Amino acid sequence: MASDDLFLTPLNALHLELGARMVPFAGYSMPVQYAGLMAEHQHTRTAASLFDVSHMGQLRLSGPDAAAAFESLMPVDVQGLGVNKQRYGLLLNEAGGILDDLMFVNTGEDLFVIVNGACKVNDLAHMQATIGTRCTITPMPDHALLALQGPQAVEVLKRLAPGVESLVFMTGGNFAWGEVPLFVTRSGYTGEDGFEISLHKDQAEAFARALLAEPEVKPAGLGARNSLRLEAGLCLYGNDLDQTTTPVEAAINWAMQKVRRTGGERAGGFPGADFVLAQLDGRLPTERLRVGLIAKERVPVREPAELQNMDGQKVGQVTSGLLSPTLNQPIAMGYVRPEYSIEGTELFAIVRGKPVPMTVTKMPFVPTRYYRG
Rank of each mutant, 00 (worst) to 15 (best):
His200Ser: 15
Leu160Cys: 03
Ala210Thr: 05
Phe207Gln: 00
Glu231Phe: 09
Leu111Phe: 06
Met30Ile: 08
Tyr371Asp: 15
Thr262Glu: 13
Gly163Thr: 09
Glu339Met: 11
Val23Glu: 15
Pro181Met: 06
Thr171Gln: 14
Ile98Asp: 00
Phe175Ala: 00
Pro247Arg: 03
Leu228His: 01
Ala305Asp: 03
Met256Trp: 04
Lys158Gln: 14
Phe25Trp: 08
His126Leu: 13
Thr171Ile: 04
Asp242Cys: 13
Ser29Glu: 10
Arg298Trp: 11
Ala26Met: 05
Gly163Leu: 09
Tyr335Trp: 08
Asp274Tyr: 08
Leu90Gln: 06
Leu236Asp: 06
Phe270His: 07
Leu322Phe: 12
Val113Arg: 02
Met1Val: 14
Leu307Gly: 04
Ala224Ile: 03
Met127Ser: 07
Ser29Ile: 06
Ser49Asn: 03
Met74Ala: 14
Met38His: 15
Asn253Met: 13
Gly188Ala: 07
Gly373Cys: 07
Leu61Arg: 02
Val248Phe: 07
Tyr88Leu: 09
Lys314Leu: 12
Lys218Gln: 14
Leu230Gly: 02
Met310Cys: 11
Ile114Thr: 11
Lys120Val: 01
Tyr189Phe: 15
Leu323His: 15
Ala206Asn: 05
His55Glu: 00
Ile114Gly: 01
Ile350Tyr: 02
Asn106Val: 05
Glu231Leu: 02
Ala2Tyr: 13
Phe207Asp: 00
Ile252Ala: 02
Lys258Gly: 06
Ser49Arg: 05
Thr319Lys: 05
Arg337Tyr: 08
Met22Pro: 08
Gly82Met: 12
Ala95Asp: 10
Val156Gly: 08
Leu18Arg: 09
Lys158Glu: 15
Gly233Arg: 06
Gln58Met: 13
Ile137Gly: 02
Arg337Asn: 06
Val23Phe: 06
Gly264Trp: 07
Gly194Glu: 01
Asn12Gly: 01
Gly223Asp: 05
Met140His: 08
Ala224Met: 05
Glu179Leu: 12
Trp254His: 12
Glu71Arg: 03
Leu212Lys: 04
Thr345Phe: 02
Leu16Asp: 11
Glu287Val: 11
Ser49Pro: 03
Lys314Ala: 15
Asn226Ser: 15
Ala349Met: 10
Ala295Ser: 10
Gly173Glu: 02
Ser72Met: 11
Gly353Asn: 05
Thr286Ile: 14
Gly263Pro: 00
Gly19Pro: 01
Arg266Val: 07
Glu287Asn: 09
Thr262His: 13
Thr171Ser: 12
Leu37Trp: 13
Tyr28Glu: 04
Val115Thr: 15
Val299Asn: 04
Ala278Pro: 00
Asn12Ile: 11
Met1Arg: 15
His143Trp: 13
Ile114Val: 15
Gln128His: 12
Thr46Ala: 13
Ala147Gln: 09
Ile131Asp: 04
Leu327Glu: 00
Ser62Met: 05
